[in-house]
């Protein structure tokens, strides 16, 4: 066949189908994602009211008597704050050490990294069981005393317990993202500090960490989204209730009582009110799900805005 004939030949066909299939896959995923959001908005929208946000869930287990989401929202916020308090220093410390001090080739580094990798893949329900096993030990009564007067075991369920376990649960993720942003700080920054005769730790504290701060904040915000969305740990470690450990929980004097007591979050509220839970008030579940999705979404948007600021600084 001459070159001319070759060039005039009909092209191979069949590749159109594969490309079409990829478009279909993307369309299916988009449609599913949009319909989940659309469904929540459609079903949950009319239950959203001032009353919904300002009343507490009803204590009764009767169907259709769910009440509002005041306590669950406070619970979610409280859990996020506590878990971040637990996780933040450890995550930043570990990320700094991993990126600045550790020798990549040593067996010790490999052990730590493997440990983090495995930790990242441990399901949250197992963390819940771990929390129960650990914090039911009598010496941890101070974390969750409420249900265990005179018992040989601590109750093992409270905001403090749930927050500690939740912090450990999101630790690998936050470490990974923080470490990436610390590593992204240009070497020239460190060299500059080094040239001035500043000690390594001081240069990290004064130069590297401030430069990496937006990235670390991004990591923490994304971690907050994970905490807000988790159900299994909350279900097992915060108690399957819809109320706080103290009836007048807003009073400062009750603060410790609340921290050591059980509670509810948006996720357990949704579960409780879903057709699968005892409350069975789907409309309230949809409304709470909408609130939760908006909250997680807002956290992600904030994280990406902060992340973008980091990129601009870096360039």
């Amino acid at each position: 066949m001459s070159v001319q004939e070759k060039l005039r030949s009909k092209p191979q066909w069949g590749s159109g189908f594969g490309q079409f299939a990829c478009w279909v896959a993307a369309a299916v995923v988009s449609a599913v994602c949009l319909s989940i959001i659309g469904y929540l908005v459609f079903q949950g929208w009319h239950s959203l009211s001032w009353k919904f946000f300002t009343t507490d869930p009803s204590e009764s287990m009767r169907e259709g008597a769910g009440g509002g989401v005041r306590v669950p929202i406070v619970g979610t916020a409280l859990l996020i704050v506590l878990a971040v308090l637990v996780m933040f220093p450890i995550a930043v410390g570990a990320a700094t050490y991993l990126s600045e001090y550790m020798d990549e080739s040593s067996w010790f580094t490999r052990v730590v990294r493997t440990g983090l990798e495995v930790l990242a893949s441990v399901p949250s329900v197992v963390f819940g069981m771990f929390g129960l096993a650990l914090f039911s030990m009598p010496i941890f009564t101070f974390l969750s005393s409420s249900g265990a007067e005179g018992a040989s075991q601590a109750f093992g369920r409270s905001f403090l317990v749930a927050a500690i376990v939740m912090g450990v649960h999101v630790l690998p993720f936050v470490i990974k993202v923080s470490e990436e942003s610390i590593r992204a700080v240009p070497v020239s920054y460190r060299r500059g500090a080094h040239a001035l005769g500043i000690t390594k730790w001081r240069s990290i504290r004064k130069v590297v960490l401030p430069a990496a701060a937006p990235g670390i904040v991004t990591a923490v915000i994304l971690g907050m989204g994970l905490i807000a969305g988790d159900t299994a740990i909350v279900w097992l470690l915060l108690g399957g209730t819809t109320t706080m450990g103290a009836s007048n929980w807003w009073a400062p004097s009750q603060f410790l009582q609340v921290l050591r007591g059980t509670g509810a979050t948006l996720t357990t509220y949704i579960f409780f009110n879903s057709p699968a839970g005892d409350g069975n008030s789907p409309q309230l579940a949809y409304a709470a799900a909408l609130v939760l999705v908006v909250l997680v979404l807002a956290l992600n948007v904030i994280a990406s805005i902060v992340g973008r600021r980091r990129k601009r600084q870096g360039s």
Partner: peptide, 24 residues
Amino acid sequence: PFESLVQLLAGIPSVVFGLVGLSI
């Protein structure tokens, strides 16, 4: 936009997936 949708899907909590699965 599609990338954002995929990230959105990643951000939906599991209990919400359960709720929508149960309802639809």
